[in-house]
Design a protein around this nucleic acid. Sequence first.
DNA 1: ATAGGGTTAG
Length: 583
Amino acid sequence: MVIGKLTASVPGPILLSLSISTISELLSKQHWSELKPHLRTTKPTIFLDQLFNVGIDSELVLRFFQWSQKEFKISYGLETTGKVLHLLANSKRYSKVRSFLDKLVKNEKHTVSSVFHSLLLGGDRPCANALIIDMLVLAYVRNLEIHSACEAFRRAQNYGFKLSLNSCNSLLSALVKENKTGEMEYVYKEMIKRRIQPNLTTFNIFINGLCKAGKLNKADDVIEDIKAWGFSPNIVTYNTLIDGHCKKGSAGKMYRADAILKEMFANKICPNEITFNTLIDGFCKEENMLAAKKAFEEMERQGLEPNLVTYNSLINGLTNNGKLDEAIALWDKMVALSLKPNIVTYNVLINGFCKKKMMKEARKLFDDIAKQNLVPNAITFNTLIDAFCKDGMMEEGFALRNTMLNEGIFPNVSTYNCLIAGLCRNQNVRAANELLNEMENYGLKADIVTYNILIGGWCKDSESSKAEKLLGRMLNLGVKPNHITYNTLMDGYCMEGNLKAALKVRTLMEKEGKRANVVTYNVLIKGFCKIGKLEDGNRLLNEMLEKGLNPNRTTYDIVRLEMLEEGFIPDIEGHLYNISSMS
DNA sequence: ATAGGGTTAG
């Protein structure tokens, strides 16, 4: 049988006279040199077209497609690509479809709309179409093209394709990882609307996303949704919720975390190691070491064995609460229990030594890492670099950065932030700015911390207008300023005595939807006091109290040092007791 | 396809 006969009914010239079995054999054995001469007279595109029609194995078609693409530098176009995909899908070669789609979304930058259009032209079996579109969404997620994944998710509905639960869950979880809360909530709502039945995992991912966005009440409410759908919250649900409260909650958050733990018990779900580790870390971060230790004991009472994560959290908590000795003792206890410290343990204790300016000890631990067959990572280096910079040893900091490069551990944004902050501390903002350029030449994007450091640097140099230029630059580059950005800039203008400019920044901040916080008020009150306008400072102080913002230690210091000393009695009687008791 | 620990800015 020859292709010529088979394709006689297909319009166009017949250019090949190889039998199908010969072609199949050549393709499967990849005897390209024997095939090549035939393609001098028949264009590869036409050859491929004929392969589509004769019904040979889809994998062989794919092989020819990929070989000819490379060999003749052909770019086949999306429509042909769509045909290959349909052929693969129809013969259930799903892993091939997957890797083919990976290449499509990774290498070639087509718009989602053109990919959709051509995929749908490639075949007319609706169920194959739905499958390919579903796998396309997954391919975008796998390749971290989350924006495209969302667009494909939207278009799937427009074209009437129902996506699988698996793809939707993957998309949801990717959106959580990228902190895209708005899109995550959209996808979740759409799933319900499109009647894609969620499972418990869907709800757990959704809760995690809400927690990461600080929407704790909304996250709590999902528990009711879970029950309404006929599911029961599981250990992952509760652990996620507890962690959300530990990390994002405000004052008294551990009470709510504890309340969730009790609810968990009431629902007959036993906490596991992760539950306790989460709680212990939460208490440590709240500087409540007593509660952390109690949770540790409770964990053992429940028959659960504290693991590496437990010890790392506790050691970290102890070092951050000035209990370096206890931290070292716990390290020893851990080793005695034959739990081997990992790189996190080392980083935590190195940080502990660094914070106490015990650089020799820190360095000794650092040298020990390699002896234990562990590998230092960027965090290890960043911890040391930051400490050296803060200790005024900039050369050491830069030397460590070079060591990193030599050892193939790439400096990241934080590395540069530590160095840039060091230069700013030494009043060398110009050099700091050059480092910003250097990091961008390395392809590292400055983040919010970088900008905040540099803005602070210029402000300290009484060059607040230069700092404001940086604010403009970050806005242009799509880095969203936060409270620290605005407060730092306001402080700069205030220290220059330019209250007018400072108030303008406040207006700008509020236009961006950020309300003044305690630091904002402290900065402005102090600014007014500095130029002798104590009444204005007092007015702001009252405004702050009216808004329900709690004054902090700095507020009281300002009142005591800037107002009382100038003989001005602030109009905040209820707080005067605190002012005198804090002095 | 879902949950826990480490570095940088007021």
